[in-house]
Amino acid sequence: MSMSLTELWTILGCGLVTILSRALPFVFVKSLTMPAWLINFLSFVPITIMTALCCQSLFIANPGHLATLNLANCLAAIPATLAGVLTKSLLMVVVVGIMAMAVLRYFSIG
């Protein structure tokens, strides 16, 4: 149980950076009137950011070259997506996804 001074400053500094990124937009949005184009722009944020977050797990970056597929994640994504289509339940997507990945790892696939 110990913490160096560098670790303490890292935690406090990064904590400040993070909370400002999160909370300041709430202050601005509350006090300013948003122009129509910005509201239009923001209406696409949910679908785009979630798609990009998915892509982060499905692609492997090869700096300087084209990306390749993360085969294990892509394979496990198939039953997970099917579970979503069939049940429309987030819980089922997660449970089926974990099970699929465990099976893939058991047979050392991907």
Partner: peptide, 12 residues
């Protein structure tokens, strides 16, 4: 894989 699965579910 739970996190990836969760985002797949949420995006769907």
């Amino acid at each position: 894989f739970a996190l990836t699965a969760m985002f797949i579910g949420l995006v769907y």
